[in-house]
Amino acid sequence: MERSFNINSPAEFESISLQIELKNINEFTREMNLNISWQALEPDFNASMKRFGKKVKIPGFRPGKIPRDRLLQQFQPNIEAQFMDDNIQKYYLNGLQEKELVPVNQAEISDVHFHFGEHFSFTAKFEVEPEIVLPKMKRKTLDVQRMKFISDQQDMDVAVDQLRKAHARIETVEDGAQEKDFILCDLQKLDDSGVPIIGKKFEKQLLKVGDGSFTDEQKEKLVGLKPGETARINLPDDREKTSSSPYELMVINVEREILPEVDTDFVKLVNPDLDSVEGFRDEVQNKIGENFDSRSQQSFERELTDAMITKVDPGAPPSMVDNYLSN
């Protein structure tokens, strides 16, 4: 009998008496043959048959009240299949627990044998984590360089600007769009002759002057635009920007990001416990230093790990490699 089973790992399962034969196919692959006697599995079979009896209908009997002999006479193969679906995972996990194994992939189930009144046997083939044996090492065995990240004024400027942006306000302006302003607009797609295409109007789109598709020549078409004015622009048809189409842009609003000045009011807004710009900059510098120290430590630990892996040279089960590459 050949069937496919989905083997997962529930948090809890009942222990049961098993006969287990374990084979090491290779360094990572294990083949576990399990055999459960009828005496050990009969309670589980009866439970599966009871659940099955509640789902079927036979004229003259209420669901769940069909005699056992009648169920077996008419539905024995179905009940056997129900039993295997209900219990193969439990027996497999009991086998893993007894042999103290932790698989790294879903088991392949084969050689399934079961009939009413007989033992239940099957084979589970799976992979386990490699056994890593650390060699004896003396001092300076691993050649690892420690990289030190050092901040400069540019890092300070970037950090301060990020805080300013986090507390910026947006204002509607009337003096015409400038680079980095936001334009709220309607976009109407045009055909090659400049005629609007019905059904291709996109309302209330937000564009940033100088970003994305709105750089260089496109940017120049947007600079200076005011509410109610229009411009002819080209937008890409796809992400690869292999082609573009003409659009008519009509400005609804022009919005500008106003960054706060770095003064005492701004410092209080960022951290009420600070009372000076100098104290604010010292705090920012300390946080940058902590961040760079953390990055330096993480870099060192990665280098150390790579050096240790090279030294130990552990293998990896194919399933672990495939899972790593696919994710």
Score class of each variant (00 low, 15 high):
F83C: 04
Q298V: 00
R232F: 12
G224S: 05
P317K: 00
T264C: 06
N291C: 02
P77R: 03
K201H: 00
A231L: 03
N24C: 05
Q154I: 08
F13V: 14
N35M: 13
A307D: 03
A168V: 05
K219G: 14
M308D: 10
D306Q: 03
R139K: 09
S326Y: 10
G194Y: 03
Q218R: 08
Q162A: 07
L71S: 10
Q218S: 07
D265A: 11
P10E: 01
Q298T: 01
A177Q: 00
A81C: 06
Q73L: 12
D275I: 08
G289N: 13
E301V: 00
E42K: 15
E108S: 10
R232A: 08
K23Y: 07
Q97C: 07
F300Q: 12
I7E: 14
M49P: 01
Q82R: 04
E220N: 08
S37T: 04
A231E: 05
G64A: 05
L325D: 10
Y91W: 13
V173A: 07
K221R: 09
K311D: 08
R70T: 12
A168L: 02
E12R: 15
R281V: 15
A47G: 09
V102K: 02
F149P: 11
M1G: 13
I88C: 08
K65N: 01
Q76C: 08
N234R: 12
P260T: 11
N46F: 13
S121Y: 07
E290C: 07
P246S: 01
F114Y: 11
R239Q: 15
A40L: 14
N327M: 12
V173F: 09
I16S: 11
D143F: 08
F266W: 03
V112L: 13
